[in-house]
């Protein structure tokens, strides 16, 4: 594994950007009420359906009850785990460890740190941007983001519960392998296109400042 920590010239084009804070408390409740409204609609449709087709009632009710019990036994624990991770694993810690690691160790650390802290993917983007600024390897950033997106310790437990050990373990192993592969590939592509900006002018140059659109 070669070290590419130093020669990350294109990092300048990425602005770390302060995540826009749009009053988290009001967003929280807005999302909650929107979802509750959806729930009411779904509930109304379901009740109508069950009134029209009474024969389906036992199946629907027993299935829903079974899944409800399973979820209610597992979700609180998962939520507590996620809360613990999000509070105890600080951003500074992630940036500190990932910013300077390289090679296979870097990949594994990227996966590990991606799998630990929890929160939606968009929380990870500013973090990734900060890592690029710090000179972290491009491949590690991609691996970190992907691990954040789809390898989460609490989530894996829920997968284990609902899809079984064989399914969960196979998918996890495949994802780890392919995510590392993807990280290296994206790094190669980006290095390659950055190295010859004059040949792919339209492609390489205009991306200098990606704007959210």
């Amino acid at each position: 594994m070669k070290k590419t920590d130093k020669k990350l010239s294109p990092e300048k084009k990425f602005k770390a950007g302060v995540p826009q804070k749009e009053n988290p408390a009001s967003t929280y409740w807005r999302v909650f009420f929107r979802d509750t409204l959806f729930l009411v609609i779904v509930l109304a449709v379901t009740l109508t359906l069950l009134t029209i087709f009474p024969a389906k009632r036992p199946t629907v009710i027993s299935v829903s009850k079974k899944f409800f019990v399973e979820l209610i036994l597992i979700l609180p624990a998962v939520m507590v785990l996620m809360g613990l991770f999000s509070v105890f694993v600080s951003r500074e810690m992630v940036v500190k460890y990932l910013g300077r690691s390289s090679g296979l160790k870097g990949f594994l650390l990227a996966i590990f740190f991606g799998a630990l802290p929890t929160g939606p993917l968009y929380v990870a983007f500013p973090l990734a941007a900060a890592l690029i600024k710090k000179g972290a390897r491009r491949a590690n950033i991609v691996i970190f983001l992907s691990a954040w997106a789809c390898i989460k310790i609490p989530q894996e437990m829920v997968e284990l519960q609902f899809l079984g050990l064989k399914f969960m373990a196979t998918r996890l192993a495949l994802i780890i392998v392919f995510v590392i592969f993807m990280g290296l590939m994206i790094e190669q592509i980006i290095d390659w296109t950055d190295r010859r900006p004059e040949e792919s002018k339209g492609k390489g140059q205009q991306k200098v400042r990606g704007k959210g659109r």
Partner: peptide, 10 residues
């Protein structure tokens, strides 16, 4: 958001 933070290409 990803584009904004990390660029289009990535």
């Amino acid at each position: 958001l990803e584009i904004k933070e990390l660029g289009k290409k990535m």
